[in-house]
Design a protein around this nucleic acid. Structure first.
Lengths: 203, 203
DNA sequence: GCAATGGTGTAATGCCTATTACACGTTCGC
DNA sequence: GCGAACGTGTAATAGGCATTACACCATTGC
């Protein structure tokens, strides 16, 4: 069906287009970015964009879902490296912080929210692939600790929401404030994490 | 400068336009709503819109800032009615819940975030009038309890962020998921509030 | 009642950009 | 090298909508 060569050329173009699109979307948002700008930056041609992605929304989906790795992978990684619950949570908090509060992540979240106004299917897909999976992985983590007899004040589901919420609330603040809120909260994220770990009785 | 009559007619139009605009913005978002639709729904004329609001963004600002009462007022109200800290916090949690998770509030938050992509001044103004004020009021509340000798594990600033974060994270989830997340988290908000109050040593 | 102030309705104007069409160069398998 | 498959560049199509202009009706103060 696809010869190796065709696949190769197309894939190179595809990657270049997605990279250019991501840069522009992060800089200016989705609506304000014209397809012609993307093509201008990446090289290639409008016709190719339509061949590869179908329409403008297609390239947005490609950009978003390429980066929308769920935090679930981070949870698994932090757990895999072992240690006491508190130790694992501290490690995880570093991963979450650097991923969720990365300006590029926040910019994409803004775009997803903006788009979700008129495209709920897109919102749903994003939500399932990120928040839901991460929450499930966290719940599973707390549940496994509970099963192995750790003292823990609170149900796994509740603790998972609380822990994830520590970061999500910062993402939201950052999404709205464009950097004004983060200076104020970032320096206190550790204090909040500490409150959580102590409150859950895990230290 | 303004005769009473002029002011009255204009004000009636103004209110009707803002109400129609809010409905349409909530239903369809800002970008997808044409000024002609707003005028069609409220009665009046395009020319009046421009006289009253200057341009399309002007009417958005009017809509948003009319409703953007800060949670600070709720904090003050809950504190005014007195009681033990835990009691006040439970009361506050009900106010916050019904305000922040109101679908209209969430829809406006989505719009503010979407707009903030290309208009940081707007984002800043909104942030200052909502999150910042609410956080300051909460911080002041915790500080006053500490000053009057209540036992409390955590600094007032940190506790304020944590408490507000309980709700903000749900707002964010709701903004992205369009109702898919809330079913899951709403039934656990009380459990989270409880965790917070116990963890802070306030019960 | 009447002028003047001010609101109304309609119809341009102008710009932007998604999407399509098409004729032309380039690459790749052989 | 050759020819077919494929990407490219440009330009036309098309629709949407903010914004403005203008001629016409309604209120209001006197």
């Amino acid at each position: 069906m696809f010869s190796a060569a065709e696949s190769c050329r197309l894939n190179r173009r595809r990657r270049a287009l997605i990279a250019a699109a991501r840069e522009l979307f992060v800089e200016q948002g989705y609506e304000k970015t014209a397809l012609s700008e993307i093509v201008e930056r990446s090289g290639g041609s409008l016709a190719t964009v339509y061949k590869l992605f179908g329409n403008k929304e297609g390239i947005l989906e490609a950009v978003v879902f390429e980066k929308a790795s769920s935090g679930a992978a981070m949870v698994d990684e932090a757990a895999r490296r072992g240690g006491a619950p508190a130790e694992i949570l501290w490690r995880l908090s570093e991963s979450f912080r650097s991923h969720f509060l990365d300006p590029e992540t926040v910019a994409l979240v803004r775009i997803v929210i903006a788009r979700s106004i008129n495209d709920r299917a897109f919102a749903r897909q994003f939500f399932e692939q990120t928040a839901t999976r991460t929450l499930d992985a966290l719940t599973e983590l707390f549940r496994s600790w509970k099963a192995s007899g750790a003292e823990m004040s609170g149900e796994p589901e509740v603790l998972a929401e609380l822990f994830l919420g520590l970061f999500v609330s910062d993402v939201h603040t950052e999404a709205i404030s464009h950097g004004m809120g983060i200076l104020r909260t970032s320096e206190r994220l550790r204090a909040r994490t500490n409150f959580f770990i102590a409150g859950a009785g895990l230290n």
